[in-house]
Nucleic acid binder design. Structure first.
Length: 530
RNA sequence: GCGCCCGUAGCUCAGUGGAUAGAGCGCUCGCCUCCGGAGCGAGAGGUCGCAGGUUCGAAUCCUGCCGGGCGCGCCA
């Protein structure tokens, strides 16, 4: 329980004491206007209907009840506007609130769900046919941050990378490598990038060996590069899952999935193909699993893969996909239902595209033609921290433009450095003081100190919201705000050598920990010095 | 035709029912005897795409339209 939770509970009790239930949970928010108090609640307006009285009059009664609830924590409560109750809290309340933050220690803001869930986050999952692109950088940053957020919320989370290593795409890579090795142009629908020639040079006998051999070797080499890129980007996976593995063993995962679907009575044969009766579950047409040729469709692989995930005991499956896959959401939800699982156990957040911009215009970004900015390029140009911030500072719902020139020019002004700088500055202050941080409740506080306490109190709510909404970008917005509020405090309140040193140091330490945690949730470093 | 996402300051974007809509960058002016100037303060800059609706209250919810991005295979 933070001081904010206590305050919220007090509002609830005060509202209940007036003899009616609010028509919605009352809000408790930090007003934008300085004159509107530390927190404001709309409880009176929500009670007006049930109590059949003007909101402002109810707010007056609520103010009296709040005074009784809060005692010396409340300086005064003012009725304002259409019926808001603005709460002005004392320095003692702020001091106790800060003490609570410090007492929580490194875990401040962490969630403790009654029933932690086992979650599998599948992300990146780029096919091993070329280097990771800047767009993969968005997926890697998002999936990794999501995993960190869910863990911080108290869940058990694994990250997995799924790749198609059996289909025609990897075969095209093999053919392209072989063509290069022979000095020919790659096939028209093959891969054209310079890396294909590099791969050809790294594979002895690439010109003469069987294409299967060249393909297998090419995939290994590409995967080695992908892993190296991910390691440089500080993204690790608990597992890599190969599509080919779904067709190994007896019975293989695909046939286990068929058996499961058969149990559910969802399969039938028609025109020589094996069909899944998805129309019964709301789809507009039934879907083929096995073609008349006997070859399984991708949909069959995907179903088998998800059945395999369920078999592994995960409560929640999260697939992070690109905007071009949004049509997949409905199909896979239907597939979950067909497997007899609750479709709500599968979530598919969609990341909008990263557009590469050159000279103010959107450039094409084709992996086949070799026209793309690689994630390695991006890291080399602006560094991992700035790249991850760039990818995570925006909602996953909005497309981002990546202009490498602009990114390079702006990287020095990237807000991530402002946040890191605030952290480093606190580290520096701590190196300069001999005093132990200690909250002194009786001390009068500067408005900037009170503002910083309130900013710190927002963190657990922000972290929980960001996890629930699968929205890491909220953490970057929060981190920037916290850094700004800290910097204002730093400007207004000398720490080292002042009588208030211990108390102000306590505030700085709480800010440092929270900044470090926020950056950690984004996979960004929190330097001691810069 | 159907579906998903977006439209907020010059630019890039936050803001999923509260009061006078914010940040970063850019622009103008001011500030380095003071714990780290990667900074601080002040200012200019907005029909929140348009039109209706719900509500005490709408950038936010609902409907329709306009504009942009992306999808709707026995492709992968």
């Amino acid at each position: 329980m933070t001081a904010l939770d206590d305050l919220r509970a007090a509002v609830g009790r005060a509202a209940a004491s007036l003899g009616a239930q609010p028509k919605a949970p009352p809000t408790l928010e930090r007003p934008r206007q300085a004159g509107h108090g530390d927190y404001a609640t709309n409880a009176a307006m929500l009670l007006a209907g049930a109590l059949k009285a003007p909101p402002r009059e109810i707010a007056e009664r609520l103010a009296t009840a709040m005074a009784a609830e809060l005692g010396d924590a409340l300086d005064r409560a003012e009725v304002a506007g259409p019926g808001f109750l603005n709460l002005f809290l004392t320095d003692a309340w702020h001091g106790r609130a800060l003490a609570g933050v410090l007492a929580a220690g490194e875990d401040y803001g962490a969630g403790r769900p009654e029933k932690p869930e086992r979650v599998l986050v599948e992300f990146v999952s780029a096919n091993p046919t070329g280097p990771l692109t800047a767009a993969s950088g968005r997926h890697a940053a998002y999936g990794d941050a999501l995993r960190r957020l869910l863990r911080f919320a108290g869940h058990s989370v694994d990250g997995e990378y799924y790749f198609n290593d059996a289909g025609s795409q990897v075969r095209k890579l093999g053919l392209s490598i072989q063509a290069r090795a022979r000095g020919d142009e790659p096939p028209e629908d093959g891969y054209q990038g310079d890396y294909v020639a590099e791969l050809a040079a790294e594979i002895p006998e690439a010109a003469t060996a069987e294409v299967e051999v060249v393909t297998r070797r090419g995939v290994e080499l590409v995967f080695a590069r992908i892993r190296a890129t991910l390691a440089a980007y500080r993204v690790e996976f608990e597992s890599f899952f190969s599509e080919a593995a779904l067709y190994e063993g007896e019975p293989d995962a695909v046939h286990r999935a068929y058996a499961r679907l058969e149990e559910q009575g969802r399969l039938y044969r028609s025109d020589g193909a094996l069909w899944l009766r998805t129309t019964e579950l709301g789809d507009d047409k039934d879907r083929v699993l096995e073609r008349a040729t006997g070859a399984a469709t991708y949909f069959a692989s995907d179903i088998a893969y998800h059945e395999h995930k369920l078999e592994r005991g995960y409560d929640l499956l999260i697939d992070v996909l690109g905007a071009d896959h949004h049509g997949y959401i409905g199909r896979m939800k239907v597939a979950m239902a067909a497997l007899g699982a609750d479709p709500a156990r599968l979530e598919i957040p969609i990341l909008q595209f990263v557009h590469v911009v050159e000279g103010g215009e959107r450039a094409s970004m084709s992996k086949r033609r070799g026209e793309f900015i690689t994630l390695d390029d991006l890291i080399a140009e602006i560094g991992v921290d700035a790249a991850r911030w760039f990818m995570l500072a925006r909602s996953h719902d909005s497309a981002v433009d990546l202009d490498l020139d602009l990114a390079r020019r702006q990287s020095a002004e990237n807000p991530v450095y402002y946040v890191q700088y605030a952290h480093a500055r606190i580290a520096s202050i701590r190196r300069r003081t001999q005093v132990e941080p200690a909250v002194e409740e009786a001390t009068a506080l500067h408005p900037s100190e009170r503002a910083l306490v309130k900013a710190l109190l927002e963190f657990p709510v922000e972290a929980a919201d960001a996890a629930e909404r699968r929205a890491p970008h909220r953490i970057s917005a929060y981190a920037l705000e916290l850094a700004q509020v800290f910097t204002a405090f730093y400007r207004d309140c000398q720490i080292v050598g002042e009588p208030e040193e211990a108390g102000r140091l306590a505030l700085a330490v709480a800010a440092q920990r929270t900044l470090a945690r926020s950056l950690d949730l984004l996979g960004i470093t929190a330097p001691e010095e810069m």
